[in-house]
Design a protein around this nucleic acid. Structure first.
Lengths: 229, 229
DNA sequence: ATTTTAAATGAATTGAATTCATTTTGGTAT
DNA sequence: ATACCAAAATGAATTCAATTCATTTAAAAT
């Protein structure tokens, strides 16, 4: 078996796998999990019913494959949509906008993500990867000194994704399209200092050490200025 | 047909309906939608399989019945958990705490609420009723002058429920129990500091806070300078 | 007590997921 | 080229559970 031959074989198999996922994605999104028939998926992928089971253990596993690929692609799209040079607030806005638009466009698929008890923990691996995009932006924001040192990233992550997911449901329910004010409003809660509130302050009350760090960070920035403006 | 007789008949039917819902709730929660077998539910409710279909058109409809009753009860529980005499922030905290605890305790049932494409719009009627509890608290807060006149209640509603739902998923995923800081943190985002009762403000406003805010504001201004960075 | 109507039953039907004995295909060695 | 083998694919047969329905049982009305 030559290496080239093996490659073409694998490519052929991957193409078929991909065809099955494409078909399944369409049918799942259109008919829901229960409504989707393996027979239909097989037909749409131009394979026999039995073939589907060579690639996926069962219907649930097939859905997991579709969902996993979907979130992987979403992660790639997000990386592309975010300007790494921009400031934290801008990056958050780009990500928030991208996220809300995406989950609205693919609402049916997203809804299938958390169908009752994801059997395998690793069913959500790709979702976790996606969520890390937010963590990275926030961490960078703290490192850059654009966010308070003790920003509760974990909590804010739940606020960010939770709010956008719930908002997408609300919009869908009312037959409304993408609404940028959802993102704006959310960001104002997450990053705007003017709206910082007592409990949040309590959670993030900076120590004198934090203040010193902040001053040093400002000092470093000042040094980069050619001249005082 | 005497009025007493009709009552006992109806009561008997309602008791049976209730028994079916009880059984279904337990089995759906334990086995998920697909895993739940009508045969098991019927056995648990001590009725024949066919009887289930006299009360509910099909399995999906039965689930809708379970979910509807669940959220109705949650609404009653919420009303009971909230002290109407208390201030807005306290009421929100009571509701937030109640909500998070409830959806954690009944996580499996809650997960079944938004299973792919709720067929009938009215499947979510009870959820809407529940959500109104939040609206009422907020509206009262605005009327009482405890919240700003233009508080975006609709947006904040999505933040409130979205965050708590997502947080509950996070906690479950990590095998963590109820965590009050989730509620505290959320409320700090939703309720602005100058609207909070003076006592609470005094208790939680440290002086370093102001310094930190000022420094951050200076830093943001620095970033705006053309030559910076 | 008899008739009528409603409720309940569970065996039979149906429909779709999954399996598996068989066939086809593609690669490798002779 | 041909024969051979293993991998891949097929789709008819099996299995499992939702749903239906002819029949029985219980309750209400007369």
């Amino acid at each position: 078996m030559s290496s080239t031959a093996r490659n073409t074989t694998r490519e052929r198999l991957e193409a078929k796998d991909s065809a099955i996922l494409d078909a399944a994605e369409g049918i799942f999104a259109q008919a829901g999990f229960d409504g989707a028939k393996i027979a239909d998926i097989a037909r749409a992928a131009s394979v026999a019913e039995g073939t589907v089971y060579l690639y996926y253990k069962n219907k649930r596993d097939l859905l997991a494959g579709v969902i996993g690929r979907f979130w992987s692609q979403l992660t790639l799209g997000a990386e592309a949509a975010i300007n790494k040079e921009a400031g934290t607030l801008d990056q958050l806005e780009q990500f928030g906008r991208y996220h809300l638009q995406s989950i609205l466009n693919q609402f049916d698929l997203v809804s299938l993500t958390y169908r009752a008890q994801p059997q395998q923990a690793q069913d959500l691996d790709q979702v976790r990867e996606y969520v890390k995009v937010f963590d990275r932006i926030m961490k960078q924001g703290v490192d850059r000194g654009e966010l308070p040192p003790h920003t509760p990233i974990g909590h804010l992550r739940d606020v960010f994704f939770g709010t956008l997911e719930f908002s997408s449901r609300t919009l869908k329910l009312r037959g409304r399209p993408y609404d940028h004010s959802v993102v704006t409003n959310l960001l104002s809660l997450i990053v705007a200092p003017d709206q910082v509130t007592p409990a949040r302050l309590e959670a993030t009350t900076p120590s004198n050490q934090d203040l010193m760090q902040k001053l040093e960070s400002i000092q470093r920035q000042l040094k980069q200025l050619p001249s005082a403006k």
